[in-house]
């Protein structure tokens, strides 16, 4: 009986944890999108005021610890090599970052293709567009979190309790 009780408690904990994890993933997605928007702001400043090249921009972003969460930046850095076009390195890095969702990947690849392809004025306009796109993704992700975050947590615990009742 004791063993059965312990088993049931572990089951409730496991399903509860699964629910919380699913909810945390949604929250992390929002945090990453917000960080990406911040990165776009920083790129805007680096282009407008420092006129940095795309490679220098990546170096500058990597040197700032707040962007450690954006794993693809480190991958871009490692992909950059003599004779490899920057855009190829960028696309490869985005594809390799397993944390990114498809919608993020699409926008980030498109952003990478625009980076450096026009004069400063053109870059400013393009970056504004991408910032707007990420604002939209953040809004959608927040709505999604409000809708599903609580649900996942409750479902996790409740499904554990339900199975426990069945077992008892």
């Amino acid at each position: 009986m004791m063993l059965k009780l312990i088993g049931i408690m572990l089951l409730v904990c496991a399903t509860g944890y699964a629910g919380i994890s699913a909810s945390t993933l949604l929250k992390e997605h929002i945090t990453r999108l917000e960080l990406t928007r911040k990165m776009i702001d920083e790129i805007t400043i680096l282009i407008r005021h420092k006129s940095l090249t795309v490679t220098e921009i990546v170096d500058e972003l990597i040197s700032n610890s707040i962007y450690t969460e954006l794993a693809f930046l480190q991958i871009v850095k490692s992909e950059i090599a003599p004779g490899i076009p920057f855009h190829t390195a960028w696309i490869n890095a985005i594809k390799k970052d397993s944390k990114l969702l498809v919608e993020e990947k699409i926008e980030l690849i498109s952003l990478g293709n625009s980076l450096g392809s026009s004069d400063t004025e053109g870059q400013m306009s393009a970056l504004t567009i991408y910032k707007d796109k990420f604002n939209l993704l953040i809004k959608k992700a927040n709505e999604n979190y409000d809708k599903k975050g609580k649900l996942y947590r409750s479902l996790g615990v409740l499904s554990g309790v339900f199975v426990a009742i069945l077992l008892i």
């Binding site: 940095l52 090249t53 855009h87 450096g116 392809s117 026009s118 004069d119 053109g122």
Partner: peptide
């Protein structure tokens, strides 16, 4: 593009 370091703006 390579000569511009893929950064025409610079």
């Amino acid at each position: 593009k390579a000569v511009c370091d893929y950064s025409i703006h610079s």
